[in-house]
Measured scan of single mutants.
Amino acid sequence: ETFPLDVLVNTAAEDLPRGVDPSRKENFLSDEDFKAVFGMTRSAFANLPLWKQQNLKKEKGLF
């Protein structure tokens, strides 16, 4: 299941849709939104070091 970017960005855990893991908001973006937000594919993002993934998520309001 995916959700629009505005539902996930800068949203407190208690305000997220049911079933969304607040530590993994990026997994609930569509592939198109994911690429638009991070400028890379999911596989490229997954290959980044964890610290870099976290920094990007913070920068984009998805942490």
Rank of each mutant, 00 (worst) to 15 (best):
E1L: 15
E1M: 15
E1D: 12
T2G: 08
F3R: 04
F3I: 07
F3C: 08
P4F: 03
P4W: 03
P4G: 06
L5I: 10
D6W: 13
V7G: 05
V7I: 12
L8N: 05
V9C: 10
V9L: 12
N10S: 08
T11G: 13
A12C: 14
A12E: 10
A13I: 14
E14Y: 01
E14H: 11
E14K: 15
E14M: 05
E14Q: 14
D15C: 14
D15P: 06
L16N: 04
L16H: 05
P17Q: 03
P17H: 05
R18Y: 09
R18Q: 13
R18C: 15
R18I: 14
V20C: 08
V20A: 05
D21K: 03
P22H: 08
S23N: 14
S23G: 13
R24H: 15
R24C: 13
K25V: 15
E26F: 04
N27T: 10
F28A: 08
F28E: 07
L29S: 01
L29Y: 02
S30Q: 02
S30A: 07
D31A: 07
D31S: 05
E32M: 09
D33V: 08
D33H: 04
D33W: 06
F34C: 01
F34V: 01
F34A: 00
F34L: 01
K35P: 01
A36G: 08
A36K: 13
V37D: 00
F38P: 00
F38V: 01
G39A: 08
G39N: 14
T41D: 13
T41A: 09
S43I: 13
F45K: 00
A46R: 11
A46G: 11
N47C: 15
N47T: 12
N47A: 14
L48A: 01
L48N: 00
P49W: 00
P49N: 01
L50D: 09
W51I: 10
K52F: 13
Q53R: 08
Q53L: 01
Q54V: 14
Q54K: 11
N55V: 13
N55F: 11
N55P: 00
L56M: 11
L56E: 02
K57Q: 05
K57V: 09
K57T: 03
K57N: 02
K58S: 08
K58Q: 10
E59H: 07
E59I: 09
K60T: 08
F63M: 15
F63N: 15
F63V: 14
